[in-house]
Design a protein around this nucleic acid. Structure first.
Length: 445
RNA sequence: CGGAGCGUAGCGCAGUCUGGUAGCGCACCUGCUUCGGGAGCAGGGGGUCGGAGGUUCGAAUCCUCUCGCUCCGACCA
């Protein structure tokens, strides 16, 4: 993408309404525009990151054997009357009437609807296990939206629902989700710690929240510092192997890590003092096992091998997709702007032409741009007629992890500069070597 | 929903207390110079001061109502 033809409305000054760093940078980098309290338009740069995150979520869900579908944002009230939640949900649910005076709602979650889909089409234990998920906009009419996309009223969420014939199978689905989530967050450059959580109004027995440590987090968390060292890495987990999946879960949930809801002072104090940490965290996901709460209420049953009819065992599992943008920025930025991890960056690399209009510089930039494109890497080429300082400032703000700087001075020696946004270190090399370097960095991503 | 603030040009703000017909910086447009970390000079365009009503010769400024947004708290992906 050539910046001169792109739509990237960056702001030099901090908008007054933005109090936390991720909100400020998302506004300043031209990623979002607020339309009402907790409701945002996604501008091109923000949409690119949102799409990257969605793609990673999809890939990891499908790797775990979960099936994507898409349910609507609007739902009929009657479905929610079956579970009893139409009355329970309260003011947070946005209720609407259509022209026929039918009661509708803008979905805050989809347990009822997915259960309806399931009961309409599945009757036998032979069709299980089944996990269906979607990534869809939700609306919760929060009392107090805040912090930009971190607590919006309209937000994009991945929500998945497992259907299993018995509790052991459902718990395997729960574990499968935990492992797939660990991998998902790691691919986004995040350390998200699963913490034993409180089940809240959705109800259920087993539940973990995934928290990203950040000083601006809304939850207080207590943990053994050793949990932050755990990494899933590239290990090849067989998602169908119950013991293997359970072992990974055990590895990641044995050390103490809890939110203030479930914190146990006595257990916490048993941790060696130097590893005892109290911090704040951003909740970026949650997994639940809730058994037959919805299947019983809504008549979602299957016939088992012995011919009896049982309500299916269920769980639901969510990732706050739009919130992740904020969480990633909170976890990865400096005083100049955002620092995107390679996995989610809107563009893999930026090209800065220090002297637009200089024949050699222009030609070298065009050459780099095309050579990168040929390797499947779309660079953001700053071809504006701006001074070097302005171009650097823009690149630093929007946070592309790698920058290739091209100027007449370097070209006279046959070199361009490759700079890491994270470390700030630069290395001179030929344009061909620069392309190869960037391609190598993104080879596994 | 309780508490506290704020709405003046695209953005950041001053002006409001003490009423006299709107200003600064950035951004934008034109020209010249400049050009490896948000350039300089000169010129220019842009605002029914959130909205409605009221007081007054006169309202951004005083009064009433209203809408919106932000922050703290209780609730939440």
């Amino acid at each position: 993408m050539r910046l001169s033809r792109y739509f990237l409305p960056v702001l030099k000054e901090n908008p007054a309404e933005a109090q936390i760093v991720s909100h400020r940078y998302m506004l300043r980098a031209g990623m979002i525009k607020q339309q009402a309290a907790g409701i945002y338009s996604w501008l091109p740069l923000g949409l690119r990151v949102l799409n990257r995150i969605q793609q990673i979520v999809h890939e990891e869900q499908e790797r775990a054997g979960h099936i994507p579908l898409l349910m609507p944002t609007l739902q009929p009230a009657d479905l929610w009357r079956e579970s009893g939640r139409y009355d329970d949900y309260g003011q947070e649910m946005l209720r609407i009437k259509d022209r026929q005076d039918r009661e509708m709602l803008y979905g805050p979650t989809n347990e009822e609807m997915i259960t309806d889909i399931f009961r309409s089409h599945v009757n036998s234990y032979k069709d299980l296990p089944l996990t269906l998920y979607h990534i869809q906009w939700k609306f919760r009419d929060e009392m107090r939206p805040r912090f930009g996309v971190m607590r919006g009223r309209e937000f994009l969420m991945k929500d998945g629902y497992n259907f299993d014939v018995d509790k052991a199978s459902a718990l395997h689905a729960y574990n499968r989700h935990m492992v797939s989530y660990l991998r998902t967050y790691e691919r986004m450059g995040l350390t998200a710690i699963p913490m034993r959580a409180d089940s809240g109004p959705i109800g259920g027995d087993d539940t973990h929240e995934f928290l990203v440590l950040a000083s601006t987090g809304e939850s207080e968390v207590f943990f053994d510092s050793a949990v932050t060292e755990l990494k899933l890495g590239n290990r090849d987990v067989d998602y169908d192997n119950r013991d293997e999946v359970a072992a990974v879960c055990k590895e990641f949930t044995t050390l103490y890590a809890r939110t203030d809801e479930t914190h146990d002072e006595a257990l916490f104090n048993a941790i060696p003092e130097e590893r005892r940490k109290v911090a704040r965290g951003i909740e970026v996901g949650q997994i639940f096992y809730f058994g037959t709460k919805y299947s019983e209420a809504m008549g979602a049953t299957v016939v088992t091998a012995d011919g009896s009819k049982v309500p299916v065992e269920m769980g639901s599992h969510g990732i706050g997709v739009s919130r992740l943008l904020g969480a990633i920025i909170e976890a990865s930025h400096d005083d100049k702007g955002i620092i995107w991890p390679e996995g989610v960056t809107p563009f893999p690399v930026g090209i800065v032409n220090l002297k637009q209009g200089d024949a050699a510089a222009d030609a070298a930039c065009e050459g780099l741009y095309k050579a990168l494109a040929a390797k499947g890497l779309e660079a953001l080429y700053d071809d504006r007629d701006e001074r070097a300082g302005a171009k650097f400032a823009t690149m630093d703000l929007i946070g592309l992890p790698w920058r290739i700087t091209v100027g007449p001075r370097g070209l006279a020696n046959g070199v361009v500069e490759v700079t890491s946004r994270r470390t700030g270190t630069s290395e001179e090399m030929s344009p061909e070597a620069a392309v190869a370097r960037i391609a190598e960095i993104y080879a596994g991503i």
